[in-house]
Design a protein around this nucleic acid. Structure first.
Lengths: 341, 341
DNA sequence: CTCGGCGACTCAAAGGTTTTCATCGAGGAG
DNA sequence: CTCCTCGATGAAAACCTTTGAGTCGCCGAG
């Protein structure tokens, strides 16, 4: 028996060494029950001795499974990726997918070109499923992907009909209600809101929470709300607009920590003390921000790590053809009190 | 001829439709010269009509190429990933790899467990090559990967011998020299340095630039330098230490923008005006930071996008077995003047 | 007219795994 | 003792592509 000693061992080699057939060796590797204890042990020993690693391509060829999933970030404004939130999501995805031993193929989709490429790639069967981060309204990529026979789990609610879609969302509305009520409970009388861009569902949900906590109608809410675009700069500007409109405001619920950081700057410049004159609550509880503002920011925590972990678990179930009890999961949010409110 | 109308078309189908053999169709797809114009056209038409996409697994099986490369971030401190620099690198990698149509498999390596997993994965032949971001001293992963018969391109100099390694570095030392000389040219007399952690080559190179621009020996430099650990908080602290040691300092070269942001805070709190009392130069020119500090930060630009692009190009050459003229490339850095110096 | 050469093409093997189907043997029931 | 059942195993097909070896037809030279 001559074995080329430099090439990687194949299943054949393992089988030979264990004194069984390829088929049996394969069964051992795939944890099939129909295999005797002796065979199992022999094969395992051979695998170890040879340092055998299954050939992914060969396996993929026959199983029609790639062992890879795509992670898609659809975002027309590439600069948004300077947002630390993005890094956190990627990190969580990498970890969660590595834990279940599937390859993560990352795709950043900005332009129509990128969309076409993603389309080709996903349709080409190069991955078994996808995790989709596509927060914006009327995202072409969502429509494209919907038509594909590919299991997809969304982060948060994409725009449009949610029928049959699998997603894991944070309780944005609930968190916003808690945040707003907290301000009310503090005895604040004039509470305003810096919202995110209203082409994102999460921003809308947070706005809705604000409205419902204060029992406002659309018109009433519109007066008290200003769009800060989920950027720090936007938060600054929105805050000054609100200050101009409502000089007597004494509390503000800001729909993201990044914007809240901007809003705090504006408030300081306007000579308002936080929290004495104006109480501030953010959203995200992004530690790198919330703990380092002055004063430290009270914020609604949404656990992105947890969200991504759930997304991966959900997708894995879909890939195993298990029935999922709930297609759409909602993760709780909780208010973290610091000093700003 | 009955074709299951839901299954993905194979090369066989394409060949049949084009009236040629599988072999010829394959040659068309791989741009082989040995094919007649008619055949070429017929096959291309068939491909288009059928929406054919080559089966990656089958191709990988026979070519022993996966069409994927790993992107490894080795970093014992997971929190560092909140650094926007990380997001930028990932983004650049995703884009550059997508452009050459290879899959990016992202791996974040924090723990020894992760290292073992990465080792298995890379040794398992699941990728054709790797891009490695491993800035720290004595990184186990670097030693592991060195022993593998796998083409790897490093970002910056890893610790240890550089013999035979392929890498793309920024001119950290040169940039530091320019930055420091700029401060000198401004007439500053007492110039200090907030360095990065000295277990990273980039930090050392920047420190060396500072030393050489001021013709300092090790001892002299040690007095004027404080380690800020490449974090904002570290920058704050380092700055106050330096202020205490050298109350008369009138300029500081900070080895990263994030630390510079921290240093600026300290300076403001100490009542120093920037740039009148103390001139500040950062490093990275990370727009999201440098443009938003008060005052906007003068900084040394290193173009990470460019660096990653070069890394990918370099790796592609290695994969194509082309000879690379220079194994180790150095990218220029340039001083971007804003208001802080 | 024959032969050699050459370009375009086809045939078929190879690549490593999973999985169906058949086989084999042992043990239990009748 | 025979027949049946059932669990473990093996042989072989299938997955889809690339590629080296071989075929075919045509042209030009002799």
């Amino acid at each position: 028996m001559l074995v080329s000693n430099h090439a990687r061992p194949t299943l054949e080699d393992v089988a030979a060494r264990a004194g069984v057939s390829r088929a049996t060796a394969s069964r051992v590797l795939n944890a099939s029950p129909r295999v005797s204890p002796e065979a199992l042990e022999a094969v395992n020993a051979a695998v170890l001795a040879l340092g055998y690693q299954p050939n992914r391509a060969a396996r993929a060829l026959v199983t029609r499974r790639t062992g890879a999933v795509a992670v898609l970030f659809s975002e027309p404004e590439p600069k948004i990726f300077d947002d630390p939130h993005f890094a956190r999501l990627i990190r969580a995805g990498a970890r969660a997918l590595a834990d279940v031993d599937v390859q993560m193929v990352l795709m950043l989709v900005h332009s129509p070109d990128d969309q076409a490429r993603a389309h080709r790639f996903l349709a080409g069967g190069h991955v078994d499923g996808a995790l989709m981060f596509a927060p914006h309204r009327n995202d072409e990529l969502v429509s494209i992907v919907k038509k594909l026979p590919l299991p997809v789990v969304y982060a948060g609610k994409p725009w449009g009909s949610l029928r049959g879609m699998h997603l894991v969302d944070n309780d944005n509305e609930g968190g916003a209600v808690v945040a707003t009520k907290h301000l009310k409970a503090l005895g604040r009388k004039k509470i305003v809101h810096v919202s995110g861009p209203l082409d994102e569902m999460s921003a809308i949900d947070r706005l809705n929470g604000f409205k419902s906590a204060l029992s406002l109608d659309d018109k009433g809410a519109a007066k008290l709300t200003e769009d800060g675009g989920f950027t720090r700069e936007g938060g600054r500007k929105a805050m000054s607009v609100l200050l101009a409109k409502h000089p007597n405001l004494d509390a503000v619920f800001v729909a993201s920590d990044l914007m809240a950081a901007g809003a705090l700057e504006t408030l300081h410049e306007a000579g308002k003390r936080v929290p004495q004159d104006v109480a501030v609550v953010g959203f995200d509880d992004h530690v790198a921000i919330a703990e380092h503002t002055t004063p430290p920011l009270t914020s609604v925590r949404q656990d992105s790590d947890e969200q991504v972990k759930h997304m991966v678990e959900h997708l894995m179930k879909l890939l195993r053809d298990e029935t999922v009890k709930k297609k759409q999961q909602m993760l709780p949010t909780v208010l973290v009190r610091r000093e700003s409110a």
